Amino acid sequence: MEIKQLKYFVETARQEHMTEAAMVLNVAQSALSRQIGLLENDLGTELFRREGRNIKLTDAGKSFYEDAVQILESIDKSKEKITNVQNLKEHTFNIHITRSDMTTKVLQSFNHFIKQDESITFTIHSEDEDTLEEKLLDASLDLVISPEKLNDDQLKSILLFEQNYYYVFRQKNRVNLPMQASLSELEDMPLATFEPAIEMAGLFKNSTIHNYKDLSIIQHLLIHHGYVAIVTNDEAKQLTYNYPNFTVYSLVHLNIKHPMYVSILKNNEKPFVNQWFNQLRQEFMPMYQPYTD
């Protein structure tokens, strides 16, 4: 039994005439008769009887007609669901953005971009950094902004900006660091950082650096226990907002920073992915060298 046979049977039952049904279905009457015959053989019963020039459903045909209509309606609904899911997938922008001082600017760019096309829906993911390349390759992510330049031949990555870091402390007898502290001077202090995007322990090899998920803990350690915080500019601003007496100096002289790249799959079939990729390139890359594909 084939779906085509069910369609032919239902239309023939509606028209009660083989020639008219063939015209509606746009098939030869002989092809229609052959398919109806195959269906009857498959079911082991006659579905129609002749009444003059017309044909009528037999009792078995009437019973089967109800089932056939339901089957075809269910198939149509399933097709519609599949189409809707596919359309949703094709118009959903899946992105990952690693936290940085530029996150707000990146999101402003994204917000402006999607407002230009109301058909785009989006999901902002928070993925493990180690899985980003895999998720771009299997298309579960469309665009990634992260510290890693992804070098797979199927991907393209460009540098957007560099994330700088600062050291923050409460100046008193126990902590008295200069504006351009040396690495050894910093490593002499207990250090704390707030969920860094890069591995801080590899930068401060001669000191144990403690990672925290709560800035209020870092603030407490700075005020009461002589810690020094290694944080981004945004995080430094939050700390000094709550406690203006903190001292904040840049770590640019020690080259403690990390790049932030934007990466996409080269053959991503969603046109808006490449469009935003190019828009980000135009918005951020004037600060750096020209980019060529």
Rank of each mutant, 00 (worst) to 15 (best):
K237G: 01
N87K: 15
I71T: 13
F64Q: 01
I209H: 01
K213Q: 08
D188I: 03
T45S: 02
E51G: 00
A22I: 09
D117I: 09
D128P: 05
Y227F: 12
H220M: 01
Q171W: 02
T131P: 00
I82C: 03
N245L: 14
Y261I: 10
V106I: 15
E73Y: 03
E80F: 08
E199K: 14
Y212N: 04
G44A: 07
V168L: 01
Y227Q: 02
T193A: 06
M179R: 15
F9P: 03
W276A: 04
L265A: 10
E133M: 15
F204H: 04
R34G: 00
T121Q: 14
K115I: 06
D76Q: 14
I145K: 09
F194T: 07
V273P: 04
I82D: 12
I97T: 08
T292D: 14
L186S: 02
Y288L: 12
T19N: 13
I95G: 04
N41A: 04
A60L: 02
R53L: 10
I114N: 01
K135W: 02
L136R: 07
K172S: 05
A181L: 04
A236C: 03
F113Y: 11
P290G: 07
S184E: 14
H125F: 14
N242C: 01
S250W: 08
T83D: 14
L221D: 01
E199L: 11
F110T: 09
F284A: 06
H96D: 09
Q154S: 15
S63H: 05
A201R: 05
T232W: 05
S182Y: 13
H96K: 07
V27H: 04
L222R: 08
A201V: 08
T121P: 00
K270Y: 10
L159W: 11
P190A: 05
V252F: 10
L186C: 03
Y8H: 12
I75K: 12
N26V: 03
Y241N: 09
Q279S: 11
D101S: 11
M1A: 13
T58W: 03
K257E: 07
N87I: 14
N267M: 15
P244W: 10
D234C: 06
Y227D: 02
Y288V: 02
F284E: 08
N274K: 15
V24T: 10
V24L: 14
E16I: 08
I218N: 03
P190G: 05
L251T: 10
D138Q: 06
T247L: 08
D214V: 07
I36K: 06
L251A: 02
F169R: 09
M18F: 14
L265Q: 13
H17K: 13
Q108D: 12
Q279A: 11
H17M: 04
H224Q: 05
E118G: 04
Y167D: 04
L6V: 07
